[in-house]
Design a protein around this nucleic acid. Structure first.
Lengths: 183, 183
DNA sequence: CCCAGCATGTAACCAGTTACATGATTGG
DNA sequence: CCAATCATGTAACTGGTTACATGCTGGG
């Protein structure tokens, strides 16, 4: 039988909240959880099929639109139990792939002006992303700061706070770097 | 001809500093640059072969030990030029894969005590990593804080500062999360 | 004598990306 | 009428991991 991988759990985590079509899963993989996990629709459809085979998800068919039937997936009780266990199990040692740091590591060879332009563009990208997270945080807090760690509201809020912290942190570092590049 | 991928540039970045065997490249992919890029030896040997085919690296053969000759790789002038250009070129939008955040996102389903244990273990791992970065930083600053952005010392120092900042940032967040889980 | 470190390579597999293929509905 | 959105799927490929395979040297 198939060994469920991290993407399987990422998808199952969405299905555990509400039933979704594969198309909607792909959308959510861009917008809310895409900030920390990410996949294309081709990979998602295959993984959904495997989740059903494993008995962790099920679907009911609805007609159209288009040449294929729409499939509304949801997590089974077994799927939820497996997800709950996985969420709290020990983390494997991460295998980082940070292209920004790799660029900086090799930046001693590059033209400082071009390098500074690249970093400035990155600062702008991340400022926009920070502004977005701050808006989401404000929305949460307007409805009362979440406190119950067993609610989806709380974990959503926690991931937003993480985003705010890490964007602020890289922004500080990038701004420091840019000043060093200006001689 | 082969389109050089990010791993190719990661390896080339090591070869641009000093000639290395494939084995040594694999070692460095664990210890210093493994903190932001990472690959196994099987992938490295194949990529080295492709870099040579592309004219961006070359090697001279030295005997043994073992059944194969040792190959000492170094970056060619063309390789260095390509690397310098790549380092300052615009970054593609990153596709994050952060398993810690995925665990937290699904943590509302899990037992808070088990969840807290997992996060505590993560705090310990990252405290050790932070202590290591701080020791490296102290060593750098003992020899005089690097300032020239066109030196390898400066870029090495910059990546260490990034490590310190991001570890401190997640540690703050993890400690906040753990207190919320203690209700 | 055994183990750790040095050293390179292949094969099979799993994960992820890109391109191709199809087609209804809704709003401008 | 056209474009965007909803909707699912396959095929070919590239990237990355795990397991297998070999064998020397030096230290305990």
């Amino acid at each position: 039988m198939w060994r469920v991988n991290t993407l399987g759990f990422a998808i199952l985590g969405l299905l555990a909240r509400r039933p979704l079509s594969g198309y909607r899963v792909a959308q959510l993989m861009r917008e809310p959880i895409g900030f920390f996990w990410n996949a294309g629709h081709a990979q998602i459809h295959g993984t959904l099929r495997k989740l059903v085979e494993a008995g962790w998800a099920e679907y009911r068919t609805e007609p159209g639109p288009g040449p294929h039937d729409k499939k509304l997936y949801s997590a089974t009780a077994a799927g939820r139990a497996a997800l709950a266990e996985w969420a709290a199990s020990p983390l494997p040692t991460p295998q980082p792939h940070d292209e920004l740091l790799l660029r900086v590591y090799n930046g001693w060879l590059a033209d400082p002006d071009t390098m500074r332009d690249m970093l400035t563009a990155e600062i702008e990208r991340r400022e926009a992303s920070l502004a977005h997270y701050l808006a989401v945080q404000a929305e949460f807090e307007a409805d009362g700061t979440p406190t119950d760690p067993r609610s989806t509201r709380f974990v959503d809020y926690a991931t937003v706070l993480n985003g705010i912290g890490s964007e602020r942190n890289v922004l500080d570092w990038l701004r420091w770097l840019v000043t060093k590049l200006r001689g």
